[in-house]
Design a protein around this nucleic acid. Structure first.
Lengths: 334, 334
DNA sequence: GTGAAAGCGCTAACAC
DNA sequence: GTGTTAGCGCTTTCAC
């Protein structure tokens, strides 16, 4: 961007300067063991002198392997994703792969578009919390290796965060504190995690004999969490479990605003544990390992690339409850 | 990943099936206006039937343009970056480019490595808060178009967040509240933003006649912010301005932990405004537009690619103070 | 151990 | 308007 860039030297120029064939230069980089130490050294030194580096695009065209993978998430800015992205990137790097990032903004159309754009130039794609119909996912997976995160489509490798245990523990925890009526503040429609969490909640509530009311929150943002508070208080619930921490954080704020004390008057449980103890009061939440999730997804992808095998991996990660200060004994709210 | 994938059809197969030359197929996609509507339709329909899509790798090799750009950040998980990343991705997408993401983990060596890996397969790179020496940046910029964010290297296009105004306003605000001794909790060494903020703070403090003490925080994390509190309280300051919101948030928590009331006993100001009012108390902070920053950086890059011009853009974005609840009248701490 | 040559899938002159 | 033909930079048999 600063000055007119000089054309990068090609393998041919190095070959010429080193007085060897192009194939030899190629080997000096990719399989030096098949060459004399002498030759390798000479070639590499010439290459260095000329500032030569293999052109990955040409390599990709020639070998059919780009050493690139893609990661598609619904919203980079949602605190659940950055740790996952980070871990995925790191893992890809470990395998000497570069990572494309796509943000679908929770929009299936955008997601499909990203998928199309990526599928031709990567060796594999990790799709997190896909909003696409099963068939669309299958169609893409037929063209390029795909690993799903938090989406359960048969015959497609997937890593799932099973909130079951965690949510169950949350319900028991709440029930133990005397809460008989619990509200579930649901997350994005079409989200596998949301369906999964709601189901787990209902099941656990039924078991302990608690009543659960669903309060919808279209998207998962702090502001929406705040706004949902009025609806929440309109129910007879004395505690709520939110789809995720972001929503829970907003609820905490909304509650504080209208003078409802947490946990004295109302208890709040989050999901994901991505906020640490940064909220006030510190949020009781269902913890998962989002970094691990990203790591495993990429690893699964890489394994698939190496073995070239037809495998139907279904990796399920457990969750557990982290009790902090946003939950307490049930009040006598009416 | 599910079944053995069928080889993607090539331009040749489409040409054969449509009974035209390969160049015609190529044109049907890239310059349909030069072909009969009839031909275009026939080719495209055949292509669709065969499931053909142009191979971007081959296109890139042939044209020398990959339609890819890269973004390198020091830490994906730091809340300052996700909005920037998101905006950059979106902007790239608008230009029909895909975005590579790299996380340097604040490590110059990793950063250099990412740079090398990317430079051969993208048309341009945005580097955020680079920790690399000027020469290294210049060297990379000589091979591929580079745009810097929050790093001021002459002759390299850059977009800078000038915390000057905002920090100045913060100092005046604090001074107006009676604070005569202010601590600066510094950020990562080698960070341009850090140097810039410290300088602005000193200058403003001098002007209003306030004393400033520097308290170092190696990295910018919530935990380090918490830990720095003891050192902070060991100074005679009655208020602090932290390098960023993350640090400030940790400081808020650390202060609360030792029973120091904010803002009654101590005032805290952050930088970046990426937390909204989610902290308790809501953080007074120096606001910038991190999304805009990402957007402008990519736009600058794209402009450079189009015009192919040698330009030395230096885009400076202003900041302003957002007064919330973490600042108040000075106490009589001794 | 090294070289020659074909080919990866596409684009871009240049012809017609 | 469409076809022919070189490449783009690299890998990879297959010889020697």
């Amino acid at each position: 961007m600063t000055a007119r860039r000089r054309k990068r030297p090609t393998i041919g120029e190095v070959a010429l300067a080193a007085n060897v064939a192009r194939s030899t230069v190629s080997r000096a980089f990719s399989q030096p063991e098949r060459l004399t130490t002498e030759t390798v050294e000479r070639v590499l030194s010439v290459a260095r002198r000329l500032g030569y580096t293999p052109n990955p695009v040409a390599q990709a065209l020639s070998t059919g392997r780009s050493r690139n993978v893609a990661l598609i998430v619904p919203d980079v800015a949602n605190p659940f994703f950055p740790p996952l992205i980070r871990a995925a990137q790191r893992k890809a790097e470990e395998h000497e792969f570069c990572l494309f990032l796509g943000d679908s903004d929770e929009d299936p159309a955008r997601e499909q578009q990203l998928l199309d754009r990526f599928s031709n130039q990567v060796e594999g794609i990790v799709i997190v919390s896909s909003r696409l119909p099963d068939e669309a996912i299958r169609a893409s997976a037929a063209r390029v290796p795909v690993v799903l995160v938090n989406r359960d489509v048969e015959a497609i490798p997937r890593v799932l965060i099973d909130s079951g245990e965690g949510v169950e523990a949350a319900v028991e925890h709440l029930h133990g504190l005397g809460h008989k009526r619990i509200a579930y503040v649901s997350g994005p429609t079409g989200s596998w995690s949301n369906a999964q969490r709601r189901l787990a909640l209902r099941r656990a509530a039924d078991r302990v004999g608690a009543k659960v009311t669903s309060v919808p929150a279209a998207k998962s943002t702090y502001d929406i969490g705040k706004k949902v508070v009025s609806k929440l208080l309109a129910t007879d619930a004395t505690a709520c479990i939110a789809f995720d921490d972001l929503l829970a954080q907003g609820i905490l704020a909304g509650l504080a605003e209208v003078g409802v004390n947490v946990p004295k008057d109302f208890s709040v449980v989050g999901c994901d544990d991505v906020l640490g103890s940064t909220t006030t009061p510190a949020l009781t939440t269902v913890s998962n390992h989002c970094e691990l999730t990203g790591e495993i997804a990429v690893t699964l992808l890489m394994d698939g690339l190496r073995t070239h095998a037809i495998r139907d991996a279904r990796h399920v990660l457990g969750t557990h409850l982290v009790e902090r200060s946003s939950t307490g004994p049930a009040s006598n709210r009416t």
